[in-house]
Write a protein that binds this DNA or RNA. Structure first.
Lengths: 221, 221
DNA sequence: TTTTTCTCGATAAAAATTTCTCGATTGGCA
DNA sequence: TGCCAATCGAGAAATTTTTATCGAGAAAAA
């Protein structure tokens, strides 16, 4: 397996799906699982799954498959989900609030320890048991608690400003929900998440079922 | 340009980003824009942008670029954002609530006209001006209002059941936030959105900056 | 024990996507 | 007018990702 280029992003994106499925399998008490089974359940090609798992360093046994507990632990470990990263969230709007409410976050490698917002209505309140603090506390808290992950759920206009603040505070990785290309030093990782990208794929596909985009064979002019 | 295979998904995912940028340009009163400019702003390759725009059927002029208003209108039209689809949302949890609060949804081709939830605490309330109804009203409302888009923000356990209900009601496209591979007839479009996929890429990358995954050159045993 | 069947692992082929190259077109400027 | 610089558009090349093929290993069945 070629690791020189790092693990492909599509592989990384599929691994959490496997985790979720494996957790359920483990709960049901399954000992082993084959790529075929995973593929059937997840509508994916077994070969691809085998390759993804190989990237994560997992090996199986012919005719048997992979031992479920080891596989789950291995993939979670590979994704860094066993030593949970502490994170801060900036922007306690509706999306920010939703993320604060996600209990599952803990089991997915990230724990939000504090939120920040500019609105005085929100600061010093708690949302889903997480305290919301004013922005001026950010740099100090991040530095003191050695936090590496920042979640950015502010409007597009303020995204770069907040991003700069995060970088200044020592944040190493930013999960960015603002539809903006952030400028950061190349020591900082930015992972963009744009919900509307996904929605665009949907509505574009839906539209083309109504009026298929056909290319004229010959120009009939 | 080859349309026989349809528009590539990566292209579709980038188009909304262009829209967002173009809207700001249009507000600032820019007449024309070149791929270079867009690329600089969005950290993308100009050639790729040119190709994406060509897929959307847009043409520019050498030395000048693309006229901003036409380009914006053209891309929005291509994405089906000018004739907004009505949608229902099922699962008024924290994520569902966040989506209901997204004012921007309207400008992105989808308007949520009703929400559904099993919890009696939530039904017949309104969240962000959208009424929450009990599940039993779903089939009738979808049929009566000729709604084609369903947004699925329920827990994994109930996702397939709700999905079946949507399909039965006549939904043609499902935006699925549950980490489950839904089974649907192949006339129905499913667009999966898994926030944790994105988070996994982030945490995996972050982890490898701490302890790079190196492949041993030679086995030193 | 031998055969059959299933699954992994590695390699190769195919497909999709991104990046590069180059000629053509257009506006600005001397 | 004629040259220069910028940009598009199309095709080629390179890269990445997915899918297919095949041999080997291991359990189950004969």
């Amino acid at each position: 397996m070629d690791f020189s280029q790092g693990v492909p992003e599509p592989t990384l994106r599929r691994l959490p799906t496997y985790c979720h499925f494996l957790r359920r399998l483990a709960q049901d008490g399954a000992d082993v699982v084959s790529c075929r089974q995973i593929g059937d359940a997840l509508h994916l090609d077994p070969t691809q799954i085998r390759k993804d798992l190989a990237y994560a360093g997992m090996a199986g046994r012919p005719k048997v498959g992979y031992p479920v507990p080891e596989l789950l632990a291995g993939v979670e470990n590979f994704l860094g989900w066993n030593n949970t990263q502490q994170a801060i969230l900036v922007g306690a709007g509706s999306l920010g609030t939703a993320l604060l409410g996600y209990k599952a976050m803990d089991r997915n490698g990230v724990r939000i320890v504090a939120a920040f917002d500019t609105s005085p209505d929100k600061t010093f309140q708690a949302i889903h048991q997480v305290k919301v603090l004013p922005m001026r506390k950010l740099v100090d808290l991040v530095g003191r608690m050695q936090i590496h992950v920042g979640i950015l759920t502010v409007p597009a206009e303020s995204a770069q400003t907040v991003c700069d603040l995060m970088v200044q505070a020592g944040i190493r990785a930013i999960w960015n929900f603002a539809p903006v290309a952030l400028k950061v030093p190349d020591t900082v990782i930015v992972q963009n998440e744009n919900l509307f990208s996904s929605l665009a794929v949907l509505s574009s596909r839906l539209q083309s079922t109504f009026q298929p985009r056909t290319l004229p064979e010959e120009d009939p002019s």
